[in-house]
Amino acid sequence: MTSREQILANVKANQPALHPLPEQFRFTSVFPDIVQQFMDILAFVGGKAERVSDYEAIKKHIQEYYPGMTNVATTIPELASLADTTLAVTDPHDLASLNLAIIEGQLAVAENGAIWLDERQLPQRVTPMITQYLAIVIRESTLVPNMHDAYQRITVNTTGFGTFLSGPSKTADIEQSLVIGAHGARSLIVYMLP
């Protein structure tokens, strides 16, 4: 018998009688102001939200916020003038010197500040981790209240990889004191378009 057969046989012999799945496992979250809720939580997890009217406003903000920044890349055609390098590389190691990545988010979750990204937003999966700084552009219309709503909207396997990203990378492994910028991006700005 292979280990596979052995394990499956033991599991079958030892598992209890079938217990049905619960019917109630999706819940509704109600927020008085879903945009404000998202912005507050994003701040709580170490990110920053900016409500902007159009791409021109984003450009202006980035130029002021990261003056003189080089090694900037974006997947958003409207912001192409900010970029001096590309995310469309075949070897992810080529992104090692990336300073700022500006990408689009597919959907955002108000309860926890998470933004869903899959390979349609990420030409290389490592982009939001390997870049020193990260900016994500979302539409306010994509905001959903909670994770149950999020999983109703997305299909996790449309592409080979997807992630819920909430705030910049962080660690509290040294005496529980929070440090932003562990192995992933050191900061996250989310631009919210109407």
Binding site: R26, G113, M147, H148, N157, T159, F161, T163, S166, A172
Partner: peptide, 29 residues
Amino acid sequence: AEHLGVFLRLLARSATGQPITAFSSHFHK
């Protein structure tokens, strides 16, 4: 996958009081 809605809401809150971990990465291929 939709069951993750339940588990990801509970996991980080129970662990460290965060609303979710910074990265919840779904690997399929």
